[in-house]
Design a protein around this nucleic acid. Structure first.
Lengths: 375, 375
DNA sequence: ACGTACCATGGAAACGATTCCATGGAAACG
DNA sequence: CGTTTCCATGGAATCGTTTCCATGGTACGT
């Protein structure tokens, strides 16, 4: 709206990309200046800096020296605009504060870095709209590929990625109806081992704190639990299942609900680490001693779980592999291939939280003996 | 190197920004196509889409409809190249897997998002060269501002940021000689409270697992510890200090070293959460019961510490405030102001790990009684 | 020694948006 | 009714880089 006449005088009228800061205009070094200092054309300078072999040793040297002298940093936006490659990947996780996803982010980021990509990390906060917002941002920034641990079940703006044929890989969770390569965990084995292990300790009523049924992991793990319980001949009382949302608070709520049953469980299985944290916290408050009064097993092998007293039994799966393989698959998609999805194994690690038989009595596989609550 | 003649035929020779994927070329929607569909010029379309008021209601409507129809997502690179604003911030932390920095990243990212910025998260892995590499990447991407929890003491490429006048704010740690706004914690109060508290429990020899002296927090906290110990009249035996590197392994090594002294400490203070984790792990292995055989206090208030048994006493400081304020300061710097640095308070939270007097005997402030190691 | 091949180089177009400037038309004013 | 003002719009320049194309020069084969 300013109408003050501006003099278009004898300034450097050639290259003026100003970054203003505290009122002072700072000129960034461009390839033009590098070329000038080296005494070559812009095209030649570009060739040298991008490693194009069609250059003489002499110019290579002079351009490199000029770039170093001026501390030249190429404008990544201009590069990306022209070359349609941004050398950046998007990584979208439901929650960075969840140690599982923090580890995943770390693993993926390191793998991406060694492949020459920077990672834009986005946080969906377990909210579909925030995920969609980030996905649009990633489309706008023309990232070369995206790795998503999806929130919700409808795909949302993931479909926009697919339409645009943006290379995309799903990780940890899948979305029904979306045909994308993925890296997931086969929860079946780990959960069956956990249930069998608890049955061997004499437990007949296992409480299950489930993930939300709007996620693939929530459904898969719940189905695996149901099957395992049936196979082991344990109680299939539907009251023993509480549906949480993968956040700590719902782990607490789950324990509350399960322990108020007239016939409460003697063992608990939590479908992720955060809900396990919530469960532990409330069990402490309720005065229940883990590993003695009640057994507890958690999905996700978090370093800290081994430090608890008693140490927590967990169903482990390798988050490092998951992150690394996700990047590998993504690089393949970027290269124009159509890689197969990868399913990683899970396995039970028994520690003190579930190692002690609560009721040392023989298991009666056929007859379900009514047991009084131990209030 | 291809010399195959390419036909430059009757294709859409106007706009061909191809993103190749699985061999198929996909054209991204550009503003040109939006303008064509709306029946206006590119300039007008741009004005509408960027909210420039110099547009008629009629065109606004038609352009908006066309953009929606085509699911247009602007090319952020072209926008940034022309407007010299990228609407993105860089956030560089020493280690995302450290829950303190994961929380910090989350807090900062949310604050940035609500201010309209996306965050590029980088991981220095506590290594100066990896930090430098990321800093160069951020310069190249022309981010609008950078928040750094610096690794090391020499600044490295941080000086390049300053030369270019890239708006930068330091967080958690500072670097001597760099005049940048920062958000840090005053460890003095929390550490003095912790030492006094331990002295009140009858401890006279407090082991200190220090952070590296090449970080400002390492130095500050060590100095605060030294002062507090002197004030409380406790042992200033230099053998009671172990210098770690803020990683879990060095916490274990520190406990090892301190417990092998002929006169080992009866209480431990760890300068960050990861070293505390390492310390807990090794104490378990050595059969030392925390809170009974040895007292333990950790710097950094991590949610999980409250779940340990016994719960861990901590020196707390607000990581949410730190992240949020860092973004606030950065926005001020971007706006051309020169904000003051902010120092946040710390305070002791006493839990079971340090609550019990280990040797209920009167303190002899002057005479140091020889105590046998309790191996 | 001459033509061919090749290689390093300079110049210019292009990527997709923003933004300045000029213009045409409508509205407002006398 | 004529002139001025203003506003919406189209066209063009521009951001910094890559990449295509043409060219000049050197080396090579005959």
């Amino acid at each position: 709206m300013e109408t003050i006449p501006r003099e278009s005088g004898e300034h450097y009228s050639t290259s003026t990309n100003a970054r203003t800061h505290k009122g002072v205009a700072v000129e960034a070094v461009t390839i033009k200046e590098v070329a000038a200092l080296a005494g070559v054309s812009v095209g030649t300078a570009s060739r040298v800096l991008s490693g194009n072999p069609a250059t003489s040793a002499d110019t290579r040297e002079r351009v490199a020296a000029a770039a170093a002298e001026l501390d030249y940093q190429p404008n990544a936006q201009a590069q990306a605009l022209r070359s349609t490659r941004s050398n950046s990947l998007g990584l979208l996780v439901p929650d960075v504060r969840n140690p599982f996803f923090a580890d995943l982010a770390h693993a993926a980021e390191q793998a991406a870095l060694s492949a020459g990509y920077v990672t834009l990390l986005g946080n969906a906060n377990e909210q579909g709209d925030q995920q969609d917002r980030y996905l649009d941002t990633l489309i706008s920034r023309r990232v070369d590929g995206v790795i998503v641990a999806p929130v919700g079940d409808d795909g949302g703006r993931l479909r926009a990625l697919i339409e645009r044929k943006v290379p995309t890989v799903l990780v940890d969770r899948t979305v029904p109806g979306l045909d994308l390569p993925s890296v997931t965990t086969d929860s079946e084995a780990g959960i069956r081992q956990a249930v069998q292990h608890l049955a061997e300790q004499g437990h007949t009523r296992i409480g299950y704190i489930s993930g939300p049924q709007a996620t693939s992991t929530g459904r898969d793990r719940f189905a695996a639990f149901t099957r395992a319980v049936a196979e082991a001949g344990l109680s299939q009382d539907p009251e023993l299942v509480y549906f949480g949302d993968y956040q700590a608070a719902s782990g607490s709520a789950g324990v509350h609900a399960l322990m108020e049953l007239t016939n409460p469980p003697t063992a608990l299985l939590a479908a992720d680490s955060l809900m396990a944290v919530g469960a532990i916290s409330i069990l402490h408050k309720l005065g229940k001693r883990i590993g003695t009064d009640i057994a507890l097993v958690a999905f996700d092998d978090i370093e800290w779980f081994a430090l608890l007293n008693p140490a927590l039994s967990v169903i482990a799966h390798s988050v490092e592999d998951m992150g690394r393989i996700a990047i590998e698959l993504l690089l393949q998609v970027i290269a124009g291939q159509a890689p197969e999805s990868v399913v990683l194994p899970s396995e039970l690690i028994v520690r003190a939280s579930s190692a002690m038989p609560i009721r040392p009595m023989p298991i009666l596989p056929t007859t379900q003996t009514e047991q009084r609550s131990q209030q």
